[in-house]
Amino acid sequence: MKPAVRIIIFCACLILLSGLDLLCGGSCFNIPEYVIFIKIRLPRMLTAVLAGCSLSLAGLQMQSIFRNPLADPHIMGVSAGAGTGAAIATLIAGATASGFPIVLSAFLGAMVAFMLIMAVASHIQSTYTLLIFGVMLGFVFSAITSILEYSANEESLKIFYSWSAGSFMGTRPTDILIMLSALAIGIFMAECNSRGLDISLFGDEYAALAGVNILKVRNIAMAGSCIMTAAVTAFCGPIGFVGIVAPHIARLAIGSSMHRKVIPATLTVGTCLSLLADIFSQVFATPLPVGSTMAIIGIPLILIILCSKPRI
């Protein structure tokens, strides 16, 4: 089967899953169907699409610049920063419901992590040292979050856990607009940087041969990825696996590692996975956390990919 045909199949799946996602979810006797559709299901479906696109594109770029098939959008500690932000809002400031204060605080937490990474990245030449810094930063934020959790009351913990479980529910038009803007910025940066990302797969020495400033390529990729991850994590909570799995499936499907070809495929696959996780979370009487359904779908896929021939 030709790669183009596979992409068309993925696009058809995307449309099908979008429609199916709109049909899933609870209903209420007092509220008309169209209100549920417009106010609840459509924003949820759009959020799933934007989250899938953003996280998968961020994951692709992280895997390329770190030349690590298990790198994902959360590897640089951005989502851990968002988690600390959300913990501060719920456990210290006493945000009483999962809403705007948590989102704002999570976004600020993610931005603090992002700025720390960029400040360090501009001074570190070695990609591996930077990767270690990102992972350590994530541990530091997680440790702060654990300390806050330890001293929190039951009600605050419940709100915090509700955010950290991950959900595409409850987003407003402005929230969707913010995520869309972050995605647009991320896609633009990734497309402009696509050749640089290709070169980074061949190592820093090859980049020097081609006369490319690999530091610039890496920093553009990290900035785009962090912006998209921060926006999605703030609104939806930390959602894993899609960022790891989608790029691998996309490469396998199109049989190429060139980013000009892989980026559109990754966006499509990421969206399909995200919609699938959302549909799966909605089929039960009580909706399941999307973070969990994504893991249930994602882990077997990761294992299959790891057991098959590695792509990069």
Binding site: L201, F202, G203, Y206, A210, V212, S256, P310, I312
Partner: peptide
């Protein structure tokens, strides 16, 4: 350099073109 990884998913021509950023 001594060692450049042979990355799957690039044809020879694509690899050469990649170096022409």
């Amino acid at each position: 350099p001594t060692h450049i990884p042979k990355v799957k998913g690039f044809t020879v021509k694509e690899f050469i073109l990649t170096g022409m950023l």
